[in-house]
Design a protein around this nucleic acid. Structure first.
Lengths: 211, 211
DNA sequence: CGGCGTTTTGAGAGAGCTCAACATCGGTGG
DNA sequence: CCACCGATGTTGAGCTCTCTCAAAACGCCG
């Protein structure tokens, strides 16, 4: 049945037994959720706010491994590891859902369907991340934006709903918001897209000498 | 026991029953391994050569989702989907290992340890891809290279073995090889790294006024 | 020795970033 | 209802950095 659903959040499909064992925890800006080397006891999902997974090398260099916003899950690999491999720090007040390892592991072990679902979600994430990474290889803001729109629209539609602000979109695309604004303006001027409130429509490409 | 092994390739840990069911297939440059919409029958791993996962939108725009080289696994999500969601095309003569779905699924279902291992591998891939993506947010070639080195060296060591050529490293970092060469030269001139045959060593940061 | 790919350095141009000013929109409170 | 405020959206101008194109040195292997 080709479930294509992005299933972004764990709580959407985690079985009741896991959800029951979970709880929400508030983390103030600057506070640490877990630290590298800590024993792993749970995986997490950001409900509000923003956390960063960071690692520090011996020279004090700060390496951001992941910048997690609402809906992002955190430290899934901790399920299969005794210790966390990086620090998790809130960069603004945040609320995270805490899913204890034992509950998850027992669910995965006792219910093959849950396990398969988990694998499917992870496999989809891998694909999606690879695609995003590939997208970053495109230097041109114009091409990158077009590619994102084409991908987000899918083969069925030419309309891309814009979730959140354009600033957030710019961030996701790895562009400054100024560059995105200019690019969108240029694309619209060129007749390649049409902008509406809350969405962007790809305009069907036409022969240069048409009409 | 914190298995940190990168486990890059499936054949390294797939159980014998899966390996037995697998086979190697040659794909000539330009040839298609599978096509979007085809029924999924297997997942793959590139042994030699190079494949691209591509999707085409209705305007003919070609979107590269993943550029897979030796060691990369392909279409893991196909395990949980009835149809492939993109084309796989060889961009040079290649050999791929073919792992039939039935063998994998039955192994995953009958052996929880195999399933967990698979989840662990996927979860690690997710983390590693997120880190790579985060790294691409760094504009400065200098910082990006330093970050890569710090990450590749790990907290224990200051030496990074260079696998393959610097050109390949440049590609992985998303830089032109010229930029990488220049950056490495500058970093060495600045005393931040030391280059040896086949490896790069991070030099311990020193106080500006030290001897 | 000859050839090919990697490594290296040079010079120039373009594209996105940075800084800056301003418009717009929504919400808030007087 | 209007003034105010903050965040988003928009546009301008200059600058920096990487990419691109080019050329040459180097290393490896037949």
């Amino acid at each position: 049945m080709d479930r294509e659903h992005r299933d972004r959040s764990l709580r959407e499909w985690f079985p009741a037994e896991i959800l029951r064992a979970s709880a929400t925890r508030d983390v103030r800006a600057g506070q640490v959720l877990f630290r590298q080397g800590d024993k792993t006891y749970a995986i997490f999902e950001v409900e509000t706010g923003r956390l960063q997974l960071v690692r520090h090398d011996r020279s004090g260099r700060r390496i951001v491994l992941f910048d997690a916003g609402a809906g992002d899950s955190l430290a899934e690999a901790a399920l299969f590891s005794k210790h966390y491999h990086c620090d998790a720090v809130a960069i603004m007040d945040a609320a995270v859902r805490v899913y204890p390892k034992p509950a998850i592991l027992s669910a995965l072990r006792s219910n093959p369907l849950v396990a398969e679902r988990f694998m499917a979600v992870l496999a989809n994430q891998v694909q999606s991340l690879r695609a995003k990474l590939e997208q970053r290889n495109i230097r041109s803001a114009r091409e990158r934006v077009l590619q994102h729109l084409a991908l987000a629209a899918g083969p069925d539609s030419r309309t891309v709903p814009i979730k959140g602000t354009l600033k957030h979109l710019a961030e996701e695309l790895g562009l400054t918001h100024e560059a995105l604004y200019r690019t969108l303006a240029a694309l619209e001027a060129a007749g390649l897209i049409r902008r509406n409130r809350g969405s962007i429509a790809l305009v069907r490409a036409r022969r240069p000498a048409s009409v």
